[in-house]
Design a protein around this nucleic acid. Structure first.
Lengths: 169, 169
DNA sequence: TTAAATAGTTGTGAAATGCAACTGAATCGT
DNA sequence: ACGATTCAGTTGCATTTCACAACTATTTAA
């Protein structure tokens, strides 16, 4: 992997993590702990940044909105699979998007049981703003990692995600 | 759909992620999305692996237990800080640990307001098993990454975590 | 043509989280 | 030394999230 550029570091990465006087290194090497903590921090931060939008407060809504924006006519069941949620949960997420006027439900022409989801004009605008916010967060939280390392990090995340998903499904 | 090509190149190192017929990385490709999805997958997986333990279902309980195991006499407020939760939430987590017989509450000798938490024999055994499970998950999870890269990936995670924490607190 | 599978909805209960208000203990200012 | 303020933890409550089960409607298979 790319050698880390220590000269850019503001934080001493090898120093033990100290929180409230405790060296949390106990949990070091615990991949899952970092993931969970990062998720918590990232989610909180995103919620704040998106507080003014109707998709705020919930990772599900954001992903669903972006999915519909990218895939006109996508089905709720497909959204559910991406979200790793069951259909009821997904249906309710879509409910809020529809109620907010960001997404439109139609019955799929080929299968009367299914629905086809479409983004509205308003929803598209919101999606654009969401992407903007995500990019901004990305930029801010990665400013301490060199571009090459950032690229590599993202690649690792993706592989980890794929691996996990493969094993669980 | 406003994904610029440089972003796509970053993500298209490996084959595109396909879920339910959708190419998901065209959709998002964002750090936060991977983090969130990974958290979801990791948590679910950990819950399953720990289903037989009384600390199952919840990242808070696990971290709290390990903390108390490593720091005899630790205070709930310190635990709260590590967990990034408020005191009520932390208190209730500790409640369940106490009720399960894994942790013992004492009043701090130096400060009558505060508590000192201690692991019980049972709790220590559970903590050991938890560590075992975490190590196992880790091993299984990373089997596709070479040890060196694994170490580097962990450093990245740790950095991201520290940076996030620094900016938010 | 009936039976089974699929898409989505509704109902319900459990769990996590966050805020405000409260008790009791320590500390600070005068 | 005493009253006010701060701090540690608890209780109550309101909100959100999520999974599971049961239900309707449509499609597919036997």
């Amino acid at each position: 992997m790319t050698k880390d550029t220590s000269d850019r570091d503001v934080l001493d990465i090898d120093a033990p993590i100290t929180i409230g006087g405790l060296h949390v290194d106990v949990l070091d090497g615990a991949f899952s702990w970092y993931i969970r903590s990062l998720d918590s921090a990232v989610s909180r931060d995103l919620d704040q940044r998106m507080a003014h939008l109707d998709v705020a407060k919930g990772k599900g809504k954001i992903t669903a909105l972006l999915l519909v924006d990218d895939y006109p006519g996508v089905r709720p069941s497909q959204v559910a699979e991406v979200l790793m949620r069951d259909r009821p949960a997904t249906g309710r997420i879509i409910d809020t998007l529809v109620k907010a006027g960001d997404v439109r439900r139609e019955t799929d022409a080929e299968d009367q049981r299914a629905q086809a989801l479409f983004i509205t004009e308003r929803g598209h605008a919101v999606a654009e703003e969401v992407r903007q916010i995500i990019r901004a967060q990305e930029e801010e939280f990665f400013d301490f990692i060199a571009p090459d390392d950032r690229r590599e990090f993202m690649r690792m995340l993706k592989r980890a995600y794929l691996n996990m998903r493969k094993k669980r499904l």
